[in-house]
Design a protein around this nucleic acid. Sequence first.
DNA 1: TCCATCATCTTGACAGTGTAAAGCCAATGT
DNA 2: ACATTGGCTTTACACTGTCAAGATGATGGA
Lengths: 185, 185
Amino acid sequence: MQPKGDLAQVLIQAGVALLDEDGTEGLTLRRIAARAGVSHAAPAHHFNGLPGLRIAIATQGFQDFRHDLICARDAMPADSGPFHRLLAVNHAYIRFARCRTALFRLMFDQLPTQDDDLRTIARASYVVLQHHCAPFVGDRKAASVETAVWALTHGFAMLKMDQPYPPDSPVQVSSYEDALRLVVG
Amino acid sequence: MQPKGDLAQVLIQAGVALLDEDGTEGLTLRRIAARAGVSHAAPAHHFNGLPGLRIAIATQGFQDFRHDLICARDAMPADSGPFHRLLAVNHAYIRFARCRTALFRLMFDQLPTQDDDLRTIARASYVVLQHHCAPFVGDRKAASVETAVWALTHGFAMLKMDQPYPPDSPVQVSSYEDALRLVVG
DNA sequence: TCCATCATCTTGACAGTGTAAAGCCAATGT
DNA sequence: ACATTGGCTTTACACTGTCAAGATGATGGA
């Protein structure tokens, strides 16, 4: 779903803003239209209804997501070891889920779609994480290591997202780094 | 949110059935009411609106979930090793996410709530998995091992849920067992 | 220049949704 | 006998997504 003009991008940004501000139930065709200053039916016309708009927003979300991951890697000092580079990327992953919960949920809710753009950018996001796993493969299967690292990170992100600061949570903050060492160590 | 009478449980079961049959957007107060043969406002009266009903359904979902995990463990032969017992439980975890996607999503969407019943049963579900990690702790921190195993399983479940059978998926079926060995091995 | 075409966006209408207020009604307690 | 409560219905309302029809303006060929 490629934007036809200027308005499409404005609508997507309005939707992202609504998700960040009001959460999942804040995302509404009519609210997006009002925020963009157009009639209530304009969004549906551009994105083929609400499902199309959700896919477009998820696509934008993955672009922001990938950007965050890459920035986290680039912000590391040049002499950082591969573990700390991987850790920085994965912390960005978890931070994104924590700071932009509604958008993060929408992104992974919309994944089982046929839309090519969404699948492409989602895959590109995965490649960033995948790339930082390479130094740790050793004589193991690369897919196994990548799967373990990704699933660990994604699962941890979901739990941190669900329970921001629960004193009795089974998962503590420091546990992630320890767990990651188990996987790549 | 404890049921006041018979109808409450009927409404919950109707909601679960709607989720299984029609997916996330099939869950509607009015559809639940129609299926239960009561007026459209009855569900809201019992559960304090849609949010309360969703919490009640998520609570029921975690009970089914925990039941599945325990049954998977009990179905293993008595001489099974601890790894195959853990694997059986985690396969049940992944299978639940795959077979009851909408309910699974709702369960973890509703987790960040104050509802005590929901938090209690969710925690009890986690304990089942936690318990099977004990043989692999060794001299490591128990929380790290449990976190790694749980996050790996949950993350893998989410990916299998999103992409049922994609030929180009970065995560293959056999990868989970390999990844789990990395963590507990 | 004129006219057809098309994309963009608006307007109006409709069914479906959650929610709140009011009412009904049987059971219960005093 | 009477008031009260809980369980459920009825009614109404605002909000939602979607569709059909129309307005507006740009494009592009004759």
